[in-house]
Design a protein around this nucleic acid. Sequence first.
DNA 1: CTTAATGCAAACCGTTTGCATAGAT
DNA 2: ATCTATGCAAACGGTTTGCATTAAG
Lengths: 139, 139
Amino acid sequence: MSEISHKLKEAGLKITLPRIKILEILENNRGQHVSAEDIYRMLLERGEEIGVATIYRVLTQCEQASLVSRLQFEGGRSVFEIAEDDHHDHIVCVRCGHVEEFHDKVIERRQQEVAAEAGFEMEDHSMVLYGLCRKCKKQ
Amino acid sequence: MSEISHKLKEAGLKITLPRIKILEILENNRGQHVSAEDIYRMLLERGEEIGVATIYRVLTQCEQASLVSRLQFEGGRSVFEIAEDDHHDHIVCVRCGHVEEFHDKVIERRQQEVAAEAGFEMEDHSMVLYGLCRKCKKQ
DNA sequence: CTTAATGCAAACCGTTTGCATAGAT
DNA sequence: ATCTATGCAAACGGTTTGCATTAAG
């Protein structure tokens, strides 16, 4: 049984073609951060038509099962990636949309401290840096 | 001439009743982070009906004129506040929605560094911490 | 056979836009 | 008088939902 099927089974989700295909797309695009729409189009290109409703349902279920993580950008757009065990944040190019990941211990620690100073017990955070990537800077 | 009218004039915006009322609401709710919908309802309660389209237009114009700042939460929801000259980030209670502001120089500096390390020229960032506020922690 | 997953289309929600009317300078 | 702002309703874009159909276990 494939890796993907195995993960689905562990999550208590039935092993169906749409689910496998969607997870394959994500696997083949590690580090790429694709939208539901992207997945829909990529599947179409291969001649595999899966309704957007299904794509969203699968992504949401897989997110709940921690197989996939969702990143919400400003403007209400979401992108998805295969869940990694390591937490990371994102830098997005405001010009070309290119996304890179980073992780910074100094920031993470300070966030905890800052939250505590405000009387909060921090559960989560979202941090996205926006700027010009190397390529776009040159143009 | 009122403070608000003065600001509008400086921004090159005509001084109109809807604009004044919307900015008044924001003034009277400093630190509260209200949505367009909130503003609409607050005005209704006072018997002042202003269309949502106008509210959005006014908020967007005022944002461009730096009179108002917009904060985009996950899920595509936006809240607004009267612009302060100092930059700050936000902590949101996941239970009651209470929002607090903070500013941390250590984090700000590291963000610049991290972006530079990734080859980016950072223009902006969004950082929202999520957790339980003091009150909700107790319950 | 039973229960969960899919496809479709319609609904949704916050936000934006086109256009005719009203209002500020 | 001119030109911008407003109201309305319709459009929008991404996402969700209801329901009948299909497929997995």
